[in-house]
Design a protein around this nucleic acid. Structure first.
Lengths: 145, 145
DNA sequence: TATTGTTATACTCTATAACTATA
DNA sequence: TATAGTTATAGAGTATAACAATA
């Protein structure tokens, strides 16, 4: 049996996650946080104060892309920038109170819509469990490519 | 226990699939098939001859986006267009022999790289099984949003 | 009126390249 | 030389809008 043919698994995963990402991106967001914005903000919230380039490395995007996203977040007052007194090159970022609030609000949009779909009865408890278990695997997979 | 908190599952899934899609998109493709191109081609291959708008509905993208992708595939001789004699509006598409060949080749690029990561030892057989099982769930999730 | 398909246009996200400033 | 950060530019992938042809 070739259920575990990794090539087939890879193909199927690619197809399914492409559709899912596209659909989620289309969901209009009242609070105005785009996917990369929410991603950067929650990442910064989890890691604590750090630099833009460190966040970029962690998120596996370029420093430029992360810098652009963080600039938007700063303009909206969701993150703060402070120059590192010990190293003039570094700018340390941290989430503001407003940022943490936005993160909360944001949970009530894209994720909530997804969550509603998940708990709508279309998915059994066992399937939900499978989905929950697989998220960390997907991250690890992205990291090991 | 809130392991099955669907909101948390949704958040985690969003974060992980975003990273994965981005990473995969970055992989250079020698044969020159982009993700939407490969997606459209393999979808057409699976469904058999059909119209652009039907494919668009299935893939959950706009007719314009699908049309643009199919035009490229036609220029490269990977799909054929034929006007429907019974309905002048419809243009029926089908995969050419070259198209089927390209689909095979394509399996040896992005999917193969993913597959290599999957079978590199970083993932146990059980984890592979989990990933395999979750692909159809993700598609269903995208469809039920 | 509804559907199929096309063209034109613009947006989002990300990349590469080139630069400044600091170490 | 190497690292942190910025600015400029370009590309992929989609979307919305507007239209023609056919049903």
């Amino acid at each position: 049996m070739d259920e575990l043919d990794s090539e087939g698994v890879a193909s199927d995963l690619l197809a399914s996650i492409s559709v899912l990402v596209r659909r989620v991106r289309q969901i209009p967001t009242g609070s105005g946080l785009s996917m990369p914005e929410r991603g950067a903000l929650s990442r910064l919230d989890r890691t604590g104060p750090t630099t833009s380039s460190a966040l970029a490395r962690e998120a596996q995007i370029t420093a430029q892309a992360m810098g652009a996203t963080l600039s938007v977040l700063q303009e909206r007052g969701l993150v703060e920038r402070r120059r590192d007194p010990d190293d003039g090159r570094r700018v340390v970022l941290s989430v503001t109170a407003a940022g943490r609030q936005a993160l909360q609000d944001k949970r009530n949009e894209r994720a909530e819509l997804l969550s509603r779909a998940l708990s709508s009865g279309d998915f059994t408890r066992a399937e939900l469990k499978q989905l929950a278990a697989v998220a960390p695997l997907l991250e690890r997979l992205a990291r090991s490519i």
